[in-house]
Design a protein around this nucleic acid. Structure first.
Length: 598
RNA sequence: GGGGUGGUAGUUAAGUCGGUUAUAACGCCGGCCUGUCACGCCGGAGGCCGCGGGUUCGAGUCCCGUCCACCCCGCCA
């Protein structure tokens, strides 16, 4: 073994040979995708990340090479030298290299492979458990290679674009300080300081602000972030952000930079030209019309509040909800009368699953309203409802009555469900949207106090600052989200750069002076020595890649992801550690879910 | 923490009303084949039916528990 690697260099990859190469002698190396043994001829499809090329081993060309080929099996690593030849009539239109093949003169098996647990094919029906356990094999599949390589191209555009605008790629610590608020931290015990812990960063937020104070006025970083919360298809415990911050910058400056960045990415990856300026929508309007702060604007079905119209109606549910401070909201499904009773029951069950107590519906038939609640509504009420929702014959109206937050949340999900079900979504569209003017605070039911809607370093809108003490929930923030087709891609804000204002916000959040010093003293200190105004944003690289790759799970764009329960099936992390390691760290395990290892 | 779906050869699935030896396809192994590209033909091996308990004369099938995977809610400044 070794003639090829030591003497013959690979001349091409398996995806690039074409008719114009016919006659050339080439060297290819890669994996055996498939071999078809015909006795005195063997065909092998050779694969590398460039594609597939058919190799022909023929008794008439080289009996030795043919003999080697006979022992080849799937996923053997081989090297061949041979001549590029026309396939004549026998072209394979499914392959980019389908017009040519390699007549092999020399062949060598560089390494053998045991039979693989699943075939390396584009369309795999294989269980995800198996894919994650044998991740190397899964990553060999072309769809995964496309995703991972796309991820590289996106990072590359980010770096090139930012470099071109004078941004510096600067690193921030991974071992840092646990801070209150926000997500649960992943903690790292300190050996030198037994009983004390570092935290892995939830984001480099404070460090990038410190860079601004230090005068590095344009910063970016493609950086890993960690949050110890439960997972979803679009949420991993460690994920990658494109993180960015600018000094002397307004919200508009951030928008301009990000719009340019996104346009470049989409141009390079998708080949599409996005509009020069992305649409904006206030948070208030998003909540009113879509019931959610990340609206999918690719289709209509706007939500309409009808609380006032039904406040005194004979339908007790509506009346009581409005009286109790809740709202009644609805949407008009154009032409929806064709929806069957069982479909409506299903939708209603869906609503209840999300926490609604029920779902009311009205079908507008030519001969009048068909609805379980029609008999409770006066002609005047019907008239006003029809106007508010623009109901016409053939339409279906759906109503939810509940507390403000829940009604919005449920209707937002119903709207999305209907959008999918009725195929109202144009999948070819890329609808970017800036959602602006978020509230600075939101009410935290669990702790019965206000909490930051974005994070506690967000600057209030200047003209609202007077309400900070009197009516904090009414104060708008200089924060913004970038939304794409109903997915939150990123979130940012103009930051506070004044230690008094920062301290005041901490006060309002119930973080006492002592805690401020202990947890954020370094930030408040820094702000005392000439902090420039600054603003920034962080975009989810994983999510951007997922959407561009048309993947439905982050796991398909992360090479080595975690399962829904936070495990890595490849390495079996997390795992128990030796008692000695614990002892060194001054730790003792109080209880485990798994039986203690010996 | 809660709800839902699933777990049967290496892989993907079937398995009826609880019934005697658990099927199929692909893959794997052996043989044959000079033009295939999901090659073909002949033959063969391969099972802790996720795990534990229960009901029963008898459990892949019914019941209870548990583990794992996926999706959703809560959670994710």
């Amino acid at each position: 073994m070794g003639e090829f690697v030591s003497q013959l260099k690979r001349t091409h990859n398996c995806g690039e040979l074409r008719k114009e190469h016919i006659g050339q002698t080439v060297v290819l190396m890669g994996w055996v995708q498939n071999h078809r043994d015909h006795g005195k001829t063997v065909m092998v499809d050779l694969r590398d990340r460039g594609g597939l090329t058919q190799l022909v081993f023929d008794y008439a060309i080289s009996p030795e090479a043919l003999k080697t080929a006979e022992s080849m099996r799937s996923e053997f690593v081989i090297a061949v030298q041979g001549e590029v030849a026309s396939r004549g009539e026998a072209i394979n239109p499914k392959l980019a290299t389908g017009e040519i093949e390699i007549k092999v003169r020399k062949a060598e098996i560089l390494n053998r492979s045991e039979p693989v647990p699943f075939a390396i094919e584009d369309e795999t029906g294989v269980n995800e458990t198996s894919r994650l356990k044998h991740r190397v094999l899964d990553l060999r599949r072309f769809p995964m290679q496309r995703n991972i390589m796309m991820r590289h191209r996106i990072s590359k555009v980010m770096r090139d674009y930012c470099d071109g605008l004078g941004f510096l790629e600067l690193e921030t610590p991974m071992l840092t300080k646990s801070t209150p608020e926000g997500a649960r931290d992943f903690l790292v015990p300190s050996r030198i300081h037994p009983g004390e812990f570092y935290a892995l960063p939830q984001s480099p937020q404070l460090f990038k602000q410190l860079f601004m104070v230090a005068g590095y006025d344009r910063y970016f970083q493609i950086v890993r972030c960690f949050r110890d919360e439960d997972l979803r298809a679009d949420r991993q415990p460690e994920f990658t952000q494109f993180d960015m911050e600018m000094s002397f910058a307004s919200q508009e400056d951030i928008f301009q930079v990000v719009e340019g960045l996104i346009r470049n990415i989409w141009k390079v990856v998708e080949g599409v030209d996005l509009p020069a300026r992305f649409p904006r929508m206030t948070w208030r309007q998003a909540m009113d019309d879509y019931g959610i702060d990340k609206p999918d604007t690719r289709f209509g079905l706007p939500l309409r509040e009808v609380s006032e119209i039904v406040a005194d109606s004979d339908f007790k549910v509506f009346r009581e909800v409005v009286k109790g401070g809740g709202i009644v909201k609805g949407l008009n499904v154009k032409g929806g009368v064709s929806m069957s009773r069982s479909e409506l029951d299903e939708l209603s069950a869906f609503a209840q699953q999300l926490g609604a107590k029920g779902m009311a519906w009205v079908k507008v038939n030519p001969d009048g309203w068909q609805s379980p609640i029609a008999k409770f509504l006066s002609d005047g009420e019907k008239q006003k409802l029809a106007e508010k929702l623009a109901l016409e014959t053939g339409d279906l109206a759906i109503f939810i009555a509940d507390r403000h937050h829940l009604a919005n949340q449920v209707l937002a999900q119903i709207r999305l469900q209907l959008g999918r079900q009725l195929k109202l979504i144009d999948e070819s569209r890329w609808n970017f949207l800036w959602v602006v003017d978020f509230p600075l605070f939101e009410w935290d039911d669990a702790n019965m106090r206000i909490s930051p809607a974005h994070h506690p370093f967000t600057s209030p809108v200047i003209e609202d600052a007077g309400f900070l003490e009197t009516n904090p929930l009414q104060v708008r923030a200089q924060s913004y989200d970038l939304v794409l087709n109903g997915n939150e891609l990123g979130s940012g804000s103009v930051r506070i750069h004044n230690s008094e204002l920062q301290s005041k916000i901490f006060d309002l959040l119930g973080i006492g002076e002592e805690q401020q010093r202990v947890k954020f003293g370094f930030l408040l200190d820094a702000f005392r020595f000439g902090a420039p105004p600054h603003a920034g944003i962080a975009l989810g690289l994983d999510r951007i890649t997922m959407l561009l790759a048309r993947a439905t799970s982050l796991r398909d764009v992360i090479a080595f992801p975690k399962t829904a329960r936070g495990q890595c099936l490849l390495t079996s992390a997390p795992s128990l550690v030796d008692d000695d390691q614990l002892k060194e760290l001054g730790l003792r395990i109080a209880h485990t879910a798994k039986p203690q290892a010996v």
